[in-house]
Structures are given as structure tokens and as C-alpha cells.
Design a protein around this nucleic acid. Sequence first.
DNA 1: TATCAGCCTTCCAGCAACTGGAAGGTCAAC
DNA 2: GTTGACCTTCCAGTTGCTGGAAGGCTGATA
Lengths: 130, 130
Amino acid sequence: MNIGEASERSGLPSKTIRYYEDIGLIRPGRGGNGYRDYAASDVHKLRFLQRSRGLGFSVEECRQLLALYEDKSRASADVKGIAEAKLSEIDRKIRELTELRHTLEHLVHACHGNDRPDCPILEELSDTAT
Amino acid sequence: MNIGEASERSGLPSKTIRYYEDIGLIRPGRGGNGYRDYAASDVHKLRFLQRSRGLGFSVEECRQLLALYEDKSRASADVKGIAEAKLSEIDRKIRELTELRHTLEHLVHACHGNDRPDCPILEELSDTAT
DNA sequence: TATCAGCCTTCCAGCAACTGGAAGGTCAAC
DNA sequence: GTTGACCTTCCAGTTGCTGGAAGGCTGATA
């Protein structure tokens, strides 16, 4: 199939698919007219990429996952390791985001709706911002 | 203080601090020798930037947050509006990250992490449904 | 006073991970 | 035989930095 159909089936823009080829993630065949020709297995890989990118894996991590996926002798411990690292990264982000939420909530409550220039919370924030 | 100390205190690399100046986020003074001169308030802003950038806010969003943070004479309605918009944005991000966390956690727990070729993480990523 | 490390300066290049656009080839249909 | 929707390559731009070169300033030491 052509790139347009591969795009539709994988959920990835054609541009991105070509880019993934550029960086060696996939290697579709070529028709006599020079058009890229995608097999079902290519679409499968593209979907794999689409999902793992969406889960927050970097392209390089995706390359590893894809290699592990294709490798018959893959060790699931490797995959688990990558996923666990990602997990603690997500935890850290959630934690920090929650902290920022508190900070901002203070800010919102400090804005009482008049035009007074003084805001004691801003002063406090300048000391506690870490 | 010089950029090195501002860097140490804010947790941002000197390079990044100069970049933030390039794009107009901060405006430190200059000494007679041409060196940038950072006040304590500059360091506070830098830390604020460091934190909000680390949480996935774009530089443009940070610019807004910073305006809210430092502009004490702004009309309260505007301030509140920006802060509230950011708040719901933060909430959305926390929600999305939490979902992602659940998905990954499920996968990690389902994966035995031994050398057997079966790996639920890879199975899930390659699942053509969804 | 010279010199040397370790700061600081500017500018230019490149990274990830795309995205957009130009310029042109191909194909199916009317 | 000419649209118009595809496809191709290549080049440039995006965001938010990061690294390096080339050179100036500073403070301590010989």
C-alpha cells in the first residue's frame, strides 16, 4: 500500500512516516514508480511506534522497544526496565505538577478582584519558589 | 552576582539563562566589564522559570506565568483569568499523566521480567485494536 | 610584572522530533 | 489530454535549548 493508506491505518502523518524511515526505524519496499510500498507488518510497526510515542517513550527508546519486539530472543526484563524508568519519571512529573498547582492556587486566591498592587502571596512565592 | 552564581542558585545552566535573556524573559543589569549582573529578584524569576519549564509549560506560557508572578499592578480580572486557565491546564496534565501512569504500571506489573519471550508490554504496544 | 586558570562575552552550529512548503513526477478519471 | 489527488525529494523552520570556538576580564601566584 502507498504511504497515504499506511498513514491512515497507523494514525501517523505521512511526513512522520517518512521521517521514521529517514532515521532508520522502518524500511518499506519501493514500487516501480518509486512510491513507498508498505506491507501489513510495516503498518503494524508504525502502530507500535505511534502507541509507544504516545506513551511518552522517546524515539530512541522506541527504537529499543522495536528491536526487542522484533528480536526472538528478547529479554522481557529489558523491556520492563525501560518501562519502569519511564514510570518513575512520570511519578516525578505528577509530584512536581501537584506542587505547582498548589502554588498557582495560592496566586488565584490572592487576586481578590480589585486593583490593589500589593499581593503578599507573590512575596511569599519569591521566597519559596524552588 | 555573575551568571555563574545565578546559575548555581537557580538550577539553570548559564547557557539557558542567556537564552532566556535573548528571548526577553529576563533583563539583568550589566557591570562596567560587560558581565551580566543578577539581582536576587532575577534569581527568583529564574527559579520560577526552571520549575514551570520542568513541568511542561511552554516558554510562551512561562512568559505569561512570569507576568502574573511579577506584575503586581495588573488588572485583577486578567491575572485571575490567566491563573485559572493555567490551573485547569495543570489539572488536565495531571489527569493525563495519571492515566498514562496507570497504563504503564499495569504493563510493568503484568510483565514477569524474566527471559521468557512473552512480554505483555510488547504485546500491548503491538495490539492492533485501539 | 607576567602568567595562568577560571570565569565571562558573542556568535555560530546542532540536537530532538517533527512540520511546512516548493518543485516536480505519477496515476486514475473524465 | 488535462485536471487533481496522490507521490517523490530537498530544504527550511519550529521549540528550547546545548556545545564549542574565539576572545576578553579577574584574581592568585611566581
